[in-house]
């Protein structure tokens, strides 16, 4: 895995796009079909954390009509496949974002919308805003810009669908499950020990 030396979109995306980072294309036929369906139908939990939230509603309108691609908004995290974190994310919001993410069912993907989710953007020196979303939740797709236009968001969706369909990169939720200690430690740096809910406990339930 290449070292992530600098903070910034270009480097971050390089990491995600790197050949070494991506898994080898070894889908079975069944898995291919499964992935095709997953790419074809996406339920979005649009968590309007920051100013990027204003860029999300237009994509559902008649001008951009993202429903063509099979992307639909849902109200509850239980049914959602995709979490859009739209812009800067304060500590208080992050707690809710993590809670929502952990209530989503696998497979689940995170889209980071706007520069703030990459390196803090204009909030780079804020005392109560996270700088890199990837330290707390595994991001599958970054969309750069401040603000990115709805076209950019649509392109992000298309690219994510392509990633899922062809299994180009390891999905974030698998990383979250396997490297949970890392994410957990980062989350605890902000919230302390008494963070609710704890992923291990949720995850332990899976084996029952």
């Amino acid at each position: 895995m290449p070292e992530n030396t600098q903070e910034g979109f270009i480097d971050q995306q390089k990491v995600l796009d790197n050949e070494e980072y991506s898994i080898k294309n070894t889908q079975s036929i069944i898995q291919k079909a499964v992935d095709w369906f997953r790419a074809r139908s996406m339920f979005v939990l649009a968590y309007g954390t920051g100013c990027g939230a204003i860029e999300m509603p237009p994509i559902f309108t008649s001008r951009y009509d993202i429903e063509r691609l099979g992307v639909v908004g849902v109200a509850t995290p239980r049914q959602a496949d995709i979490l859009i974190v739209s812009g800067y994310c304060s500590y208080k919001t992050l707690k809710r974002v993590i809670r929502s993410y952990e209530q989503m069912n696998e497979p689940k993907y995170v889209i980071g919308l706007g520069s703030c989710t990459i390196n803090g953007g204009m909030y780079w020196d804020s005392y109560n805003t996270i700088k890199k979303l990837d330290e707390y939740l595994p991001v599958d797709m970054y969309i750069n810009g401040c603000m990115p236009r709805p076209e950019a968001l649509i392109e992000g969706f298309v690219k994510l669908q392509d990633n899922i369909r062809n299994a180009k990169s390891e999905a974030g939720y698998i990383q979250y499950r396997e490297n949970n200690a890392f994410y957990r430690a980062n989350q605890e740096k902000i919230f302390g020990k008494n963070t609710t809910p704890t992923f291990e406990e949720n995850f332990a339930g899976m084996n029952q």
Partner: peptide
């Protein structure tokens, strides 16, 4: 709008059946 394909609801239901958990 143009709207999704006719089979979109079918895709949705298959996808939901195929969720990991």
């Amino acid at each position: 709008r143009f709207g999704p394909s006719l089979a979109q609801s079918f895709f949705d239901s298959i996808k939901l059946f195929l969720k990991e958990n």
